[in-house]
Simulated assay, not measured.
Amino acid sequence: MDQVAVRLQGLVQKRAHFQLGPIDLVIPAGYVTAIVGPNGSGKSSLFRLILDLAKPDRGEIEVLGKKVGSGDDRLLKQRIGYVSEKSIDIEENLRANQKADFERQWYPDWDVNRYQELLRRFDVETNLKLGKMSKGMRRKFDIALAMAHNPELLLLDEPSSGLDPIAWKTMIDVIHRYMERGDRTVVMASHIVDEVKRLADYIAFVIQGKVIGVYEKDSLLESWHVLYVDTGNSSERVNLAQMPGYCSAKVSGGTTHKVVTSEAQKAQSWLASMDIPVIGQQKLELDEILQVLMEQTRGA
């Protein structure tokens, strides 16, 4: 994480029924970071703050080395591509090619060949009015539009919403190819487990307006396990809550306990030192990890 694409420090945004933050978050440059959390956790609000489309009540935002909200940000935004979760209603009477003609004026690095290539790959009909497009077609057009100027930073809010399986696979491939140079960054909000597993290098969990943790994806998925242990005659002298990475435990039958840990290797070493056999184990999926974190947050 030597280079930073986005830095949020002490960020707070207050609304009547929701508070985002305080948040301290560093998003590394050159990687794909997925922001994962339940609906209403503040993911879309984070994107709007990063783009200066909304203002924080306090805190600082730095994007690509520039402080956000400090003046004319046109040059900064020319380095960013953004796909919003929701389409803009007032654009519905525009044809796709009209929208593209308008957008390209703002980007000196607009690459018409790249744009046409993306349209072909996504099979987008640009003579249609945006309001007449299916949700999936509009999504494909928005992705092509956001990537046409080869941005350094690509912000994707639920990018696969409405995509059919073929278009989804195309999107995955397009993003992989976009990242091949090594100097580009993607920040994406997604609730699609397979999408995050295929694309993300880092995962940031956002729950109830706060960043619960940022993890390297492969390490995260390797370290969170369910362990089935047989405490046998040791149940009276062993406190499973002392196990490294302990999250929860419940009786699975007799003297067998189902234990969730976020530090599987250390947990197994600890259990061995306590002469407690592990009789079964399995890795947790991303949505299961999120569920555990949500339960811990509620109980905090």
Rank of each mutant, 00 (worst) to 15 (best):
C247L: 11
Q291L: 15
D111R: 13
S70A: 14
A34M: 08
T231K: 02
G209T: 03
S262R: 13
Y115K: 05
S273V: 00
L240N: 07
V187A: 08
I279D: 07
K217P: 11
E216M: 02
I212H: 04
D142C: 11
I276L: 14
G131L: 13
L49R: 07
Y31F: 13
Y202E: 10
T256M: 08
S134F: 07
I23W: 01
I289R: 03
L94V: 04
D142I: 07
K66A: 14
N239P: 06
A241R: 11
I203Y: 04
D73K: 12
R79Y: 02
W110Q: 03
R74T: 08
Q281V: 02
A189T: 10
L25N: 07
D72R: 10
A5G: 04
N233I: 05
L11D: 12
L271M: 09
M243A: 13
P159D: 11
S160C: 08
S269N: 13
K66E: 13
D287G: 01
T33H: 03
D230H: 08
G254D: 12
L25T: 05
I80M: 13
S160Q: 12
L128D: 05
E222G: 04
M147P: 05
T256A: 00
I289E: 03
R298A: 15
L46N: 08
L128M: 05
R104M: 15
I279Y: 01
T170D: 06
E125S: 11
G30V: 05
V206L: 15
D164S: 09
R7S: 09
V211W: 01
P38M: 11
V292L: 06
V226W: 12
I279G: 14
N127P: 02
A148P: 12
Q281W: 10
